[in-house]
């Protein structure tokens, strides 16, 4: 075993924590890559990263996805309801978080009724994270409109699911525990990404008409 890893473990750092911290640079680098080279935007870098870890913390990813979709669907619905009241930003978000919270509770109970105990036993940490996702969602709705907000939410979901599979890939975890410094290699890679001025893959599609023209 790598001396750094054994040092950490022998001093009481839990293995899970160690793995998550070492894998975090890879996840955020992947998100940066998706934005700069592929053109999938998502809600910035924090939200998809934290949703990835929320997925890791739910026992099964399908429950994570169900909760995520519920939050976004409720967020859209409640925004529609609240539009006519013309409320100020923070009170409006407070109401949304409340309603989304209750919707998640209802979802857990329904899961229990249909003997989906896995859903009810999801720990509170991922649930809270995903409920607060609604604030990001509302902010984007206001800034860029409802359509864009839904597109970005779907992109966030896609990135987080990919992140989940990367972060729970046993071969990668084993590798990173043997060579923890590999994580730092993301820094030069990000310097490269940060200087990248080429077209994003999505832009080849967006500007296809110009590319096609004579």
């Amino acid at each position: 075993m790598n001396p750094f890893v054994s040092l950490a473990l022998s001093n009481g750092v839990p293995l899970d924590t160690l793995v998550l911290v070492l894998i975090l640079p890879i996840i955020v680098t992947m998100i940066a890559f998706f934005r700069q080279v592929i053109g999938i935007k998502a809600f910035g870098i924090y939200t998809p990263a934290i949703i990835t870890f929320a997925f890791l913390a739910t026992n099964q990813i399908k429950y994570g996805i169900i909760i995520f979709v519920t939050v976004i669907a409720m967020g859209t619905f409640v925004r529609y309801l609240l539009k006519q009241f013309r409320l100020l930003y923070l009170p409006r978000v407070a109401i949304m978080i409340t309603i989304v919270g209750f919707a998640i509770l209802a979802l857990l109970i329904i899961g229990g009724i249909y003997n989906r105990t896995g859903l009810a036993s999801v720990s509170i940490f991922p649930i809270l994270i995903m409920i607060t996702l609604v604030e990001k969602f509302v902010a984007v709705q206001i800034e860029k409109g409802g359509r864009t907000a839904v597109i970005l939410a779907v992109e966030t979901l896609i990135i987080s699911v990919i992140g989940y599979y990367i972060a729970s890939w046993p071969a990668l975890i084993g590798f990173i525990l043997n060579y923890p410094w590999i994580s730092l290699l993301t820094i030069p890679f990000n310097i490269f990404l940060g200087k990248w001025t080429g077209l994003r893959m999505s832009e080849y599609f967006r500007f296809r008409q110009i590319i096609k023209s004579k």
Binding site: G39, T197, L199, R200, E203, Y204, F207
Partner: peptide, 15 residues
């Protein structure tokens, strides 16, 4: 040739 003429987000922001 055509795609080299296009200004993308990355180049717009950075260059």
């Amino acid at each position: 040739k055509n795609s080299r003429k296009i200004l993308g987000m990355n180049a717009r922001n950075l260059q």
